[in-house]
Simulated scan of single mutants.
Amino acid sequence: MSNGYKRKVIIVDDHPMMRKGLAQTLDNELEFDVVAQFDRAEEAIQKFEELSPDLMIVDISLPGMSGLELVKHLTARDEEVKILVVSRHDETLYAERVIRAGAKGYVMKLEAGEVLVKALRKIMKGGIYVSSEVSEKLLMGMARGQKDMNESPIDQLSDRELEVFELTGKGNSTREIAEKLHLSIKTVESYRARIKTKLNLENATELMVHAVKWAESEDADL
């Protein structure tokens, strides 16, 4: 930037190569300074006040606390923090969720580096960055005052239900999900019951099969 001030950036992603790629992209731009990289949300929370970042780049799927929960946690502590979610997950499913949670933008990991920089610059100017397709979907939803009638059943899941659904699809047991999300086993079972109802699934076996298929389709986009 012309005044020589660099925007301090923290990257939170559990894939070392992804963190390295994001950092290199930003290091090539004069206005950004990557001051820290973390692979867990909990580490970012611990260092947040000390580092006082201008920007944060956050992945959704993290060990322990999810990126979505991290966004909610940080924006509750500091309304001014600007967060861009960069994830491999389907933007049409997650972009609206992260914006509602307090993030200022969403970029797919498959996008080129210049898209990342463009998104960060727009966010720093006070804007919100999503793709034109998602922007149109969000505006249509606002205009109707209702959820899109054509939404997929997965869209009906709450943020926490979606986390439980994804972890189920990755082969985690109820106890493992409870430990990862810091919930009781009874609470996880309650979420699973709600998921079955919303997705019109008869039993735990159908839930597992459905979740595994969905998780595999998500991974196929990597």
Score class of each variant (00 low, 15 high):
residue 1 M to P: 14
residue 2 S to K: 09
residue 2 S to H: 13
residue 12 V to W: 02
residue 12 V to P: 00
residue 13 D to V: 02
residue 13 D to P: 04
residue 14 D to L: 07
residue 14 D to H: 08
residue 15 H to I: 12
residue 20 K to F: 12
residue 22 L to S: 02
residue 22 L to Y: 08
residue 23 A to Q: 11
residue 28 N to F: 14
residue 30 L to I: 11
residue 30 L to R: 09
residue 31 E to D: 06
residue 31 E to W: 07
residue 33 D to M: 12
residue 35 V to G: 11
residue 36 A to F: 05
residue 38 F to H: 12
residue 38 F to D: 05
residue 40 R to A: 05
residue 40 R to W: 03
residue 42 E to L: 01
residue 42 E to H: 04
residue 42 E to W: 03
residue 43 E to L: 10
residue 43 E to D: 14
residue 50 E to R: 11
residue 51 L to C: 03
residue 51 L to M: 07
residue 52 S to K: 14
residue 54 D to S: 13
residue 56 M to C: 13
residue 56 M to L: 12
residue 57 I to Q: 02
residue 57 I to K: 01
residue 59 D to H: 04
residue 61 S to F: 04
residue 62 L to F: 02
residue 62 L to I: 04
residue 67 G to F: 02
residue 68 L to M: 12
residue 71 V to A: 04
residue 71 V to I: 14
residue 71 V to G: 02
residue 76 A to N: 15
residue 76 A to W: 00
residue 77 R to E: 00
residue 77 R to L: 07
residue 79 E to L: 10
residue 81 V to D: 07
residue 82 K to H: 02
residue 85 V to E: 04
residue 85 V to H: 05
residue 85 V to Q: 00
residue 86 V to L: 04
residue 88 R to C: 01
residue 94 Y to K: 02
residue 96 E to P: 01
residue 99 I to T: 07
residue 100 R to Y: 00
residue 103 A to Y: 04
residue 107 V to Q: 07
residue 107 V to W: 07
residue 107 V to L: 15
residue 108 M to N: 04
residue 109 K to D: 02
residue 110 L to F: 03
residue 120 L to H: 06
residue 124 M to S: 14
residue 128 I to N: 10
residue 128 I to A: 09
residue 130 V to M: 05
residue 131 S to V: 15
residue 133 E to C: 02
residue 137 K to V: 12
residue 143 A to H: 11
residue 143 A to M: 15
residue 144 R to L: 13
residue 145 G to E: 04
residue 145 G to V: 00
residue 146 Q to N: 15
residue 147 K to G: 00
residue 149 M to E: 15
residue 150 N to I: 07
residue 152 S to E: 14
residue 153 P to L: 08
residue 155 D to E: 10
residue 156 Q to T: 13
residue 157 L to I: 14
residue 158 S to C: 09
residue 158 S to H: 00
residue 159 D to F: 00
residue 162 L to P: 03
residue 163 E to I: 08
residue 164 V to T: 14
residue 166 E to W: 06
residue 167 L to C: 03
residue 167 L to T: 01
residue 173 S to Y: 09
residue 176 E to H: 10
residue 178 A to R: 06
residue 179 E to L: 12
residue 181 L to R: 09
residue 182 H to N: 12
residue 183 L to V: 00
residue 183 L to C: 13
residue 183 L to S: 06
residue 183 L to G: 03
residue 187 T to E: 12
residue 188 V to T: 08
residue 188 V to M: 11
residue 190 S to E: 05
residue 191 Y to D: 02
residue 193 A to E: 14
residue 195 I to L: 11
residue 196 K to I: 10
residue 199 L to C: 12
residue 200 N to S: 10
residue 204 A to K: 15
residue 205 T to Q: 14
residue 206 E to A: 08
residue 207 L to N: 08
residue 208 M to C: 05
residue 208 M to V: 13
residue 212 V to Q: 10
residue 215 A to Q: 06
residue 215 A to S: 11
residue 216 E to F: 07
residue 220 A to R: 01
